[in-house]
Design a protein around this nucleic acid. Structure first.
Lengths: 248, 248
DNA sequence: GATCATAGTCGTCTGCCTGACGATAAACAG
DNA sequence: CTGTTTATCGTCAGGCAGACGACTATGATC
């Protein structure tokens, strides 16, 4: 075979799928939409859609994200904007049989977003909701009840990426509003990792890691108890030393 | 737009590109092939080719790898075979202008291989060689001399992935022959990271990390000096504690 | 208003890991 | 036999992490 021969290559459909994660009520949740068409009609699926002919992959992901949630993707290359969500490429899935209709290669993206009021249904979906990832992945074991296509696997990969990435990067702040307390950040780690962390050691650790948090000046009592200092995400993206996920 | 509408989607060409890394003569090297066609005719590029109509992405990468090098990819899902190389998906590149002829989405894969006798030229390439990544990436700065397409960026991403991944996984052993010494493994780390490591601390660290190395029984003196114990890669894939890349 | 529950913040202590480095061992080259 | 190279074992001090005690500041409840 002669690679890059423009006259003879099998045509593919290329889509982007989104694993949009957030933390609500102490649980890691993912955005899912109900499919309005065959196949898998009525089943939940990850949001996504075709990449347009003149569109970048990241651009397509950002467009789909905005269409489904109204979120504005925060491009790490353009700093300063943090009202949006973190978006990064996750992995690409191209099994020949993953879509029964045609050959589809899907470039999955991972989005980490602060808790949002309510998902708004995108054009093609009958509904959209935040579902705890535990539910979605547990349901995936039963053959018929799980997510459409190979989306359970994609979701699993996205969750695993998020779990490991908040260890050595400051991405956990992407789950928080612009100003947040140490306790709120700790609850993010606890929800994503599914463990309980010592508040005192956690406080020492995050406030001692240079560039992770900068004081925002105020305090809040929205979590009850003693007022807590408000922080903003610092400039550091890589944490040194990293946060360590407790052993099993 | 109605996602997954089979009747209307822009057709894409999907390729796999390979970042094949090895360590030769204390330097991290990548496999590059000389392009025999336009565009970028005569320039060096990463090996790769079209994904076939009935082929998995990983399968396409393994096929290209075998065609270009004769290496047998070691699928992590099928343990027991370690005569081959480690292969994993790296990232996907889909800028609309990355190929001047048509819309090509390339799923790049990363291969870590032990030092090989000599690359064998693949069908479409006039030549193939191992080039130190420092050279390739430095040349990428000068506009015309670098790798074809966006391959300098892909190579950079692959190198960065390899550098970070040998920190917390046992993947450095993928650069070694089946049986190797602690010193040989240390030279892998030194070449990939581009730093000098203390042989005594390194020895203590790797032999003390459970599951990283298992004694193979013999000794060798192929590196000169006192005979060194031979080891084989242990079952562990994640290192705990991780190897730490020295600070800058 | 006293008491309690909740959450936040500051310290202390101990064990482990790391980096720096000395010392010894076992091969080969001259 | 001496120097060179590489491997391997030990020692020591500093730093970080986990366990946990103590204190503070708010709202809720009686």
């Amino acid at each position: 075979m002669s690679p890059y021969d423009p006259s003879a290559f099998p045509p593919f459909a290329v889509t982007v799928d989104l694993v949009v994660l957030t933390v609500r009520r102490h649980a890691l949740c993912a955005l899912v939409v109900r499919r309005g068409e065959q196949p898998f009609q009525g089943r939940w699926a990850l949001p996504g859609g075709f990449v347009r002919a003149d569109e970048d992959l990241a651009g397509a992901a950002a467009r789909e994200l905005s269409e489904e949630t109204g979120l504005c993707a925060h491009d790490p290359a353009v700093p300063g904007v943090d009202n949006g969500a973190h978006l990064e490429q996750l992995a690409t899935y191209g099994d020949p049989k993953r879509d029964p209709r045609m050959r589809v290669v899907s470039v999955a993206h991972l989005v980490l977003a602060p808790d949002l009021p309510a998902p708004r249904a995108g054009g093609d979906a009958n509904g959209a909701r935040w579902a705890p990832v535990d539910e979605l992945l547990a349901a995936g074991d039963q053959a018929t009840a799980g997510l459409a296509f190979d989306h359970a696997r994609i979701l699993g990969d996205g969750v695993e990426r998020a779990r490991s990435k908040i260890e050595y990067s400051s991405l956990a702040t992407a789950f928080c509003p612009p100003e947040f307390t140490v306790g709120e950040l700790r609850r993010v780690y606890e929800a994503v990792w599914g463990v309980a962390l010592d508040p005192r050691n956690f406080h020492r650790k995050v406030t001692g890691t240079p560039g992770f948090l900068v004081p925002a000046g105020g305090t809040t009592t929205r979590q009850g108890g003693r007022p807590a200092q408000l922080f903003r995400a610092g400039g550091a993206t890589l944490l040194n030393p990293p946060m360590l996920r407790p052993e099993v």
